[in-house]
Amino acid sequence: MEPETTNAADARRQLEQRRTQAQAEQDNLALLAEVRAVLSEVNPDLKWRTPEPAVESGSLCKKPFDRVDGAGTAILTSGGAFGAISDADWPRAWAAVKAVAAKRGYGDENVLKDEPGGHQVSVYDKDGSELSVGTGVNTTATVYGACYLEDPSADGPSTTGAGAGWREAGARGVWSCPDTGSRLGRMRELDGW
């Protein structure tokens, strides 16, 4: 299995040259905030669904980084806005998005769609993260993140994941009402005697 080990080691070395996951997320969330701002400047009637951009989901990395421990990827969303950028305003909007994206290392433009009533363009950074911005009836801006190593200073996956936090909340729900007559609560009530 020597070649595989070598590949995993190479892959890890490659990731070590990149920002940490935490830094990449911070940078990309800031980018999405800037994208929201410039799009809202073009069309002030855009109504963003969330107060600010957020991490939509995270998962493990695909090849060639799939065997690197502590490597992960994330999808970040602007939240999406009700309302469109008009065809007339789109060139100005996209130019503004490109400008803020370029400051964060995004380029290599790929126009996926450019027709009346619908526009979708992506730009990429050197790590392979994609900023995808589109408008139709509504407007979207999403970052499909590249693979990064987790922040070494983080506490670890079991305490940082949203899933873990949600589960703890669920568990609290089970145990927090000892005097309500619930089956589990009653046993707790008796245990206290």
């Binding site: 991490v55 939509e56 989901s57 995270g58 998962s59 493990l60 992960g72 994330a74 999808i75 996956p157 079991s158 940082t160 994941g161 949203a162 899933g163 873990a164 949600w166």
Partner: peptide, 13 residues
């Protein structure tokens, strides 16, 4: 380990 790692990632799993 893989299940743990997947569940620990952000978002709803």
């Amino acid at each position: 380990d893989t299940i743990d790692a997947m569940l620990a990632r952000p978002g709803q799993h």
